[in-house]
Amino acid sequence: KRPVSAMFIFSEEKRRQLQEERPELSESELTRLLARMWNDLSEKKKAKYKAREAALKAQSER
Rank of each mutant, 00 (worst) to 15 (best):
A35L: 11
I9P: 02
D40Q: 12
D40G: 09
L56I: 14
L25D: 01
R52W: 04
E29Q: 08
R2Q: 02
I9E: 02
A51V: 11
P23Y: 02
D40R: 04
R52T: 12
E20M: 09
L18N: 00
P3I: 15
R36G: 08
A35N: 14
E21N: 15
K48A: 14
E61Y: 05
E53H: 06
L34S: 03
R32L: 14
N39W: 04
S42M: 01
F10D: 00
I9W: 04
E53F: 05
Q59E: 15
W38V: 00
E61C: 10
E27N: 02
K14E: 04
I9K: 03
T31R: 10
F8K: 14
K46W: 01
K57L: 10
T31K: 09
M7T: 04
R16S: 14
A58W: 09
K57W: 06
Y49R: 00
W38D: 02
L33E: 15
K50Q: 14
V4I: 14
M37E: 09
A6K: 02
Q59C: 10
P3L: 10
R22I: 03
R2T: 07
L41M: 11
A54N: 13
N39Y: 10
P23G: 03
P3D: 12
K57E: 15
W38Q: 01
E53W: 07
A51E: 13
E12L: 05
E61R: 04
E24F: 06
I9H: 01
A47Y: 07
A47M: 07
V4L: 13
R15M: 05
L34R: 00
A58H: 15
M37Y: 07
Q19I: 15
L18V: 13
A55R: 11
Q19P: 00
K57Q: 06
R36K: 10
R16P: 14
R32I: 14
W38G: 01
A35C: 05
R62W: 15
L56K: 09
Q19V: 13
T31W: 04
T31H: 10
R52D: 08
Q19W: 06
E24L: 04
E29A: 07
F8C: 10
L34K: 00
L56S: 15
S5V: 05
E12H: 05
E20K: 15
E61T: 14
K46F: 00
E53K: 02
S11M: 15
I9R: 05
Y49C: 01
K48R: 12
Q19A: 12
A55V: 13
K50R: 13
D40Y: 04
L25T: 02
K14Y: 12
R22Y: 10
L33A: 07
F10V: 00
